[in-house]
Design a protein around this nucleic acid. Structure first.
Length: 463
DNA sequence: CAGCAGGGGGCGT
DNA sequence: CGCCCCCTGCTGA
């Protein structure tokens, strides 16, 4: 306490600690929370104030979000990382396994968490000298900021001098932590429903009712076996209200053939903030990601090439509908298949990227980045279609058999099997095909038998 | 080799 | 968004 001219300066000795403690307590009790972060199906009611204070990204997001209690769905951020980051933001400290550090940093950079991804006190001198975000340059990656380095040192050292209890330590296997927190999830989900205003701010879709997030998740959590976790995860992230629209006409009636089960499949609309994120991350998180790939991430097997897609907008909200009911056509352990499919598709996608086929996936700046793989496209509808390869969603059902497809096109193509329609006919023989590709394949057989003389359009048999 | 299916890109509306 | 074209892989005759 200092006094001068009769004025007393009252100092609250442990103000910071108390303040942080109160904030954490408020968060624990979900008091005054005004934003909910949704991550891997978990919901984190938090305070805009804290997020805005700790992240310019969130600050900007809330600036553009008039909604009272938005729900921000963060895709491709592990809930363990999210919890760690929240602990970091609320407590100023977080414990992280060394093997999870790179991934955490990556998440922090995506969210522009001050002190982890960006300096909490930007060096003004450097700002004037270099660009506005010197910490985001590649050069800077090679030499982490003092803040991060200090934190790394702290985290790698066993003596964590913090009096604060360690946060939920990120599990070695990110696929399993979800179980351990399920009861918590449910409480969060229920609290979610208690919010007075139901307008959600979703990364992928700014205006979606909250119930669309929580209900499918709970249903999935209750009904699915642990083995379906990957599937559950997909469901949780996804909303479902648009399902209705597409699902209604998903079963196409061809030639008046019988109806069938109504499918409530569908998809969601485009995203808004991912683009913002892109613009705010002009530099790809290459190094951090590569770092992360060296870790225990399940993606390392196929991400390990270090070849990253252009935008790499992790928060691209390509969540589709939450209706993942197992259709009769889908036999076998769906969840397990799904997991395998995820890897397989990812490999396919990677092959596409690396093989490239001259498409320029890597270098071109495409708008939409699949959150599950490297696939990028300029077309939102193509992305939704592609995303179904990860979710396994097949909203289009054949009215004559149990066939289901992820696209209307495939269903139409399939239905020719029933109708016998073969619109593609060979100009050389009487061959007809229901599939244009098959016709092309067939024509190639002719090409092997005939050559066309440049002087005469007539084909000559060669052998 | 044909049939079927999955998946990506381009283009018009 | 829907449609179309394309390529590819798998399977069975």
């Amino acid at each position: 306490m200092m006094a001068s001219d009769g004025m007393l300066s009252l100092s609250w000795n442990n103000h910071k600690a108390t303040f942080c403690h109160i904030l954490s307590t408020l968060r624990e009790k979900e008091r005054y929370t005004d934003v909910t972060l949704a991550c891997e199906g978990k919901f984190y009611p938090v305070h805009k104030l804290v997020l805005s204070t700790c992240s310019e990204y969130f600050e900007k997001m809330f600036e553009h979000t008039p909604c009272k209690h938005p729900v921000v769905v963060l895709k491709d951020i592990k809930c363990a990382d999210m919890e760690a980051l929240l602990s970091y933001m609320y407590d100023g400290v977080v414990s992280v396994l060394q093997q999870d550090l790179a991934r955490l940093i990556k998440a922090a950079e995506l969210l522009q968490i001050k002190g982890l991804a960006v300096p909490d006190e930007p060096p003004l001198k450097e700002l004037s000298k270099k660009n506005a975000y010197p910490w985001s340059s590649r050069d800077d990656r090679s030499s982490p900021h003092p803040k991060r380095r200090r934190r790394e040192d702290m985290m790698t050292s066993t003596s964590q001098g913090s009096s604060l209890p360690p946060p939920e330590s990120p599990p070695s296997s990110p696929q399993h932590h979800q179980e351990s927190n399920q009861s918590w999830d449910h409480s969060k989900s229920h609290s979610q429903d208690q919010r007075e205003d139901g307008v959600d701010q979703r990364v992928g879709d700014p205006v979606e009712p909250a119930v669309e997030f929580s209900s499918p998740k709970q249903e999935a959590s209750h009904n699915q076996e642990p083995v379906d976790e990957s599937l559950v995860k997909e469901e949780v992230i996804e909303g479902s209200e648009d399902n209705q629209g597409e699902g209604m006409d998903s079963r196409i009636e061809y030639g008046g053939m019988g109806g069938g089960d109504s499918n409530t499949g569908g998809e969601e609309q485009g995203s808004k903030f991912p683009h913002q994120l892109d613009t705010k991350h002009p530099q790809p998180l290459h190094e951090a990601v590569v770092e992360a790939l060296a870790g225990p991430s399940g993606m390392q097997g196929w991400l390990g090439t270090g070849e990253l897609g252009g935008g790499f907008s992790m928060l691209e909200g390509y969540s589709e509908d939450g209706n993942q009911e197992v259709h009769p056509a889908s036999t076998g352990p769906h969840g397990t298949q799904q997991s395998h499919q995820m890897v397989g598709r990812a490999n396919d996608s990677l092959r596409s990227v690396l093989g490239g086929a001259g498409k320029g996936y890597i270098t071109s700046k495409k708008k939409h980045q699949c959150p599950c793989c490297f696939y990028t496209t300029n077309s939102h509808s193509h992305m939704r279609e592609h995303y179904r390869t990860h979710t396994g969603e097949k909203p289009f059902s054949c009215s004559s058999c149990s066939y289901q497809s992820s696209t209307r096109r495939d269903l139409r193509k399939h239905f020719r099997v029933h109708t016998g329609e073969k619109p593609y006919s060979c100009s050389v023989c009487l061959y007809r095909s229901a599939n244009s590709s098959d016709l092309k394949k067939h024509v190639r057989t002719h090409d092997r038998l005939f050559v066309v003389s440049p002087l005469s359009p007539q084909r000559k048999e060669v052998d």
